[in-house]
């Protein structure tokens, strides 16, 4: 594998967006890009990552390769990332290490790190990427992040309901409750403020607040978040990157007995 990001902070943002959700991951590298899936220890949150060749300045992968890493180690190396540096990832055919090369052409500086790969035997879940949903919402990632930060302070459970009035985020804590209603809108001058809802059925689902706080760490990857809900499946929270690919979080709901 030889894959070069023209801006090393892109890879840092990707890794930082899920390093607190899962501790280790297998990157599956092939000619169609880098893909990965990991499940958190409680088996409630699944991270699904896709970095297609379009995200790279140059991308070459001669044969499918699995690259297992501890995310805390990788994240330490990526502290060296800067927007003025490129980052090339190298993995040999018989991989036992990942080489990261940062190059700053203006500063005539290069940094090289080598990281030992780990053999990760995690089971993978079969996720249908065309999973049917009753409700799809596209909205500002900044707005979603603020709502999650504000409301999760009040309760361990966070409820999302979608009906004819719009989308309602609410919490009902021991000492306080809160509710935010958003209606669809189109802001032609600032499309990142758009909110669209398509719905075949109303939904009313609750999630554990702590996982939502992990999910919003990926909001640095995209202006928009796409939400998919259905009463029968986990919810999908997805941040799509400008150059293609992105990160999706599948989150199992909480049900009242």
């Amino acid at each position: 594998l030889e894959a070069k990001f023209d801006d090393s902070t892109i890879f840092k943002k990707i890794i930082d967006s899920f390093k607190d959700s899962v501790s280790q991951i297998n990157f599956m590298c092939s000619e169609s890009g880098i893909e990965a899936q990991a499940i958190d220890d409680s088996r409630v949150l699944l991270v699904s990552l896709s970095i297609p060749p379009s995200c790279f300045e140059t991308y070459r992968c001669d044969r499918p390769t699995t690259v297992g890493v501890y995310l805390s180690s990788l994240s330490k190396l990526l502290k060296s990332a800067s927007s003025s540096a490129t980052l090339t990832l190298y993995v040999e055919d018989q991989p036992d290490e990942l080489l990261l090369l940062f190059e700053e052409s203006k500063a005539s500086k290069s940094m090289e790190y080598k990281m030992k790969l780990v053999d990760i035997t995690a089971d993978m879940l079969e996720v249908d990427s065309d999973m049917k949903s009753d409700v799809s919402v596209e909205m500002s990632g900044v707005e979603f992040t603020k709502i999650v930060r504000d409301l999760t302070q009040l309760s361990d459970s966070f409820t999302v309901s979608v009906g004819k009035d719009g989308i309602v985020f609410s919490v009902d804590g021991e000492t306080a409750s809160g509710k935010v209603l958003l209606q669809p809108k189109e802001d032609l001058a600032n499309p990142e403020n758009n909110l669209s809802i398509s719905m075949t059925k109303t939904i009313d689902l609750s999630f554990a607040s702590k996982y939502l706080l992990d999910i919003i760490k990926a909001s640095t990857l995209s202006n928009m978040i796409s939400l998919k809900f259905s009463e029968e499946t986990p919810a999908l929270f997805e941040f799509k990157m400008e150059k293609g690919g992105g990160i999706g979080f599948y989150l199992a709901p909480k049900y009242d007995e």
Binding site: D123, L125, E126, S157, S206, A208, P234, Y250, Y255, D256
Partner: peptide, 14 residues
């Protein structure tokens, strides 16, 4: 407030 479901209840292991 509710019982947390696990992903294994929804997705099959590959």
């Amino acid at each position: 407030q509710g019982t947390q479901k696990r992903l294994d209840g929804f997705f099959k292991v590959k």
